[in-house]
Computed example of a mutant assay.
Amino acid sequence: MHKTDFLPATFVEPLLEYLQARQIDDRALETELQQVLQSSHVCARQFCDLLERLHRHDPVSALGVRLGRAAQPRHFGVVGYMLSSCSTLGQALPRYQRYHALLQQGLHSRAWLGQGVLHMRWSQAVANTPLALEFSLAVFVSLYQSLIGRAQAPLHAGLPFARPADSDVYQVLLGCPVQFGCAEIELNLPAHLLAMPIASKDPYLLKLLEQQAQALLSQQPEHMDADSEAFFVRVQEQVVESMKNGDASAEAVAAALGYSLRSFYRQLQQAGYSYRSVLAQTRHTLARQYLRDPNLTQSDAALLLGYAEQSSFIRAFRSWTGITPGEYRQRHLQQRGGSSPAQAS
């Protein structure tokens, strides 16, 4: 079981907006929420604590559900953008299952179809307080409804904690019967929703985002304690984000994660990595995927990997593989026997 876990820091945004909208006077809490939003992830235990502190100020029923219903796909980071690029909900949900470890390592889920119903069940190893569990249920409901562009209610929802005195509020907020005392979080959806189109579909962007998500998953270490593993995943994700911004230096990544450079290096060393190796490994994995994409030029690949100069990309790629990017692309083309890729430029 994970002793430590992390969630996207963007999930804190609904908390901050709620605190400000309700005019709750707690400057320390507001400052902490704002500080969390400056980083890419928030510790699951810290997130649970933030929910509890907000609830003490405003002890309304089903606060976690209320907060979760304000979530949008963008709060799910690269996974949310990838799902928004899918053509249908049926195309999006299997990808959510495949890549949810990028959102929360300690989340375990399963789904199956039966008699016209999509059954979903999941549990959270660390973010498992009642407020966090109901937030998790509500953000997923908000996610699928945002993707299809309509407030289609679930058929059934279930939560793994005792029935509260004001349980009727949950049914009102979620739009369906809610069962309590379940073994896991439960959600049942009409199977016909899987055919619902997603208006923001973008097949090319979907392919690109899925390549990045797959690269992050494939690099997750097999033998590492939970704390180090969570830190390693956060570093990987921030490296990809920093490459898009054109500055993938250790200083930029450390600052984005809220670490001093010395502390950042020490954490990496404890996990058995150096920053140079993490950056090179991530770039190498993504480079090969980008070069196999006929819609991307060699210059596009270099820019996506954070290289200001294409010559730097060529030198780095040759050091990884012994050949140039152009030679790698040509070999891949010959192996596939397909059409010509985009011309290098």
Rank of each mutant, 00 (worst) to 15 (best):
Phe231Ser: 10
Asp293Thr: 13
Ala250Arg: 12
Arg315His: 11
Arg234Phe: 02
Thr297Met: 03
Glu186Gln: 13
Ala183Pro: 00
Asp300Gln: 04
Cys182Ile: 00
Asp247Pro: 05
Arg234Ala: 15
Glu210Phe: 02
Gln267Met: 10
Leu303Val: 12
Gln179Glu: 14
Phe231Arg: 09
Glu229Val: 05
Val233Cys: 10
Gly181Cys: 06
Leu187Trp: 02
Gln179Pro: 00
Thr285Pro: 00
Asn295Phe: 08
Leu193Asp: 04
Gln298Val: 12
Ser263Asp: 13
Ala226Pro: 08
Ala256Phe: 07
Leu291Phe: 09
Pro197Asn: 03
Ala226Ser: 15
Met224Ser: 14
Leu305Lys: 08
His192Asn: 11
Gln238Cys: 10
Ala213Lys: 03
Tyr275Thr: 04
Ala255Tyr: 09
Arg234Met: 14
His284Leu: 07
Tyr265Asn: 09
Phe313Glu: 03
Arg276Ala: 15
Ala308Tyr: 09
Leu209Ser: 02
Gln298Ser: 12
Asn295His: 15
Ala255Cys: 09
Pro190Gly: 06
Leu286Glu: 01
Pro294Asn: 08
Leu189Ser: 02
Arg262Leu: 11
Phe313Cys: 04
Asn295Asp: 12
Cys182Tyr: 00
Gly306Glu: 02
Glu237Pro: 00
Ser260Asn: 05
Val233Ala: 12
Gly258Trp: 05
Arg266Val: 08
Tyr275Ala: 03
Gln220Asp: 03
His192Leu: 08
Leu194Phe: 02
Ala230Gln: 14
Leu261Trp: 05
Glu241His: 09
Lys244Met: 11
Gln214Met: 05
Arg234Ser: 15
Ile185Pro: 00
Val233Tyr: 08
Glu237Val: 07
Leu205Asn: 11
Tyr265Lys: 13
Leu189Cys: 02
Ala254Ile: 03
Phe313Pro: 06
Ser260Glu: 10
Leu268Ile: 05
Ser312Val: 00
Pro197Gln: 07
Ser274Glu: 10
Phe232Val: 14
Gln236Cys: 15
Ser218Thr: 08
Asn188Ser: 13
Tyr204Ser: 06
Pro197Asp: 03
Ala302Ile: 03
Arg283Met: 03
Arg292Val: 00
Phe264Tyr: 11
Arg288Ala: 13
Glu237Met: 12
Ser242Gly: 11
Glu237Lys: 14
Leu257Val: 06
Asn188Gln: 14
Tyr290Cys: 12
Gln281Asp: 15
Tyr259Arg: 04
Ala213Cys: 15
Ser312Ile: 00
Cys182Met: 12
Phe264His: 07
Gln179Thr: 13
Ala195Asp: 15
Ala230Pro: 06
Ser311Trp: 08
Phe231Tyr: 14
Ser299Cys: 06
Ser242Arg: 14
Gln179Ala: 09
Glu210Val: 01
Leu303Glu: 14
Gln236His: 13
Gln211Met: 14
Leu303Asp: 10
Gln211Thr: 10
Pro177Ala: 02
Pro177Glu: 02
Glu237Cys: 10
Ser311Gln: 13
Ser274Val: 01
Gln270Ser: 10
Asn245Ser: 12
Gln289Pro: 00
